[in-house]
Write a protein that binds this DNA or RNA. Structure first.
Lengths: 154, 154
DNA sequence: AGAAATTTGTCCGTATGTATC
DNA sequence: AGATACATACGGACAAATTTC
């Protein structure tokens, strides 16, 4: 097999498969995913392809990776339907901190924040977007060496 | 030469170097960067490494890539010093729209927005971050095929 | 405490497919 | 159509962080 990528590229197919396993609970939140080598064996692709799929999931905040340790599924991302509030659409969701927010809040990359997004329209046209972030205070934390990530409950 | 990467990985060193060239004006805003092959030759690294450096710059919105065309430096990111306003630090800057904001505003990826960020502290600890975005109304646009990107002024 | 094994991170070289000019 | 450039994929190698013994 040279390198045919008709339709969807392989790394995307794999990413979608893993995403479904996480969302369906086949891979519980907070637990480690199979290792890269295991996925290489399962999907019969090269390690680079697996890593590309992982990067895609990481970008979406669905998983987080720690060097020498593994990649685990992050906490549930709760996304609510937008509600109307004074002419603006307001929507709230839990998100993992990106690099910038992690630095500002001085928290770990991937730690949970609550994002409130408000979208303002004028004549149907979006003219302003406001996003506020606050710490998500719960026992839901990114697993660390101090606790057992396997048994951590979201 | 096996694969020594003391300290910083090479792709990051290259990304920093390119970033400096852009910020110092060696690579003017709006102009195309050297091609991948040129950078491969200059830095004596593989294409994948160059592409990784490019991806890093792209993620930061410093450059934008068009398929079959090349990679060019995006508009100036004006970043002002934070000012204090009622117990919060407020800072404004121009940023290129990421995928989400581009979708919400219905504008092109990389088009300019004005971001106002407000950071609130309690006892020195950051407790909330608010970001508002509005359209940046000016002639500064991301270059398109219709105009000549080379001569585009920010 | 320390060595070995495991796992992810980075890098290389190469090849081929696909889109644009 | 031809040239150029980006996207995907492979296999191998060594580095670095973590866990296990």
């Amino acid at each position: 097999m040279p390198t045919p990528h008709y339709g969807q590229p392989r790394y995307r197919v794999i990413a979608d498969e893993l995403r479904q396993r996480i969302e369906s609970g086949t891979i519980p939140r907070g637990t480690l995913l199979p290792t890269e080598s295991a996925l290489v064996a399962e999907f019969r692709v090269s390690r680079g392809t697996i890593r590309q799929a992982m990067a895609a999931l990481r970008k979406d905040g669905l998983v987080a990776t720690e060097h020498g340790r593994g990649t685990y599924a992050t906490a549930t991302l709760c996304e609510c339907n937008p509600i109307r509030h004074g002419g603006a659409e307001v929507r709230q969701r839990k998100i993992p901190a990106d690099a910038h927010l992690a630095a500002v809040f001085d928290i770990k990359l991937g730690a949970l924040l609550v994002e409130t997004e408000s979208v303002t329209r004028e004549n149907g046209r979006v003219v302003a977007v406001a996003q506020t972030y606050r710490l998500y205070l719960d026992r839901a934390q990114v697993p660390s060496r101090a606790t057992e990530p396997q048994n951590w409950i979201e």
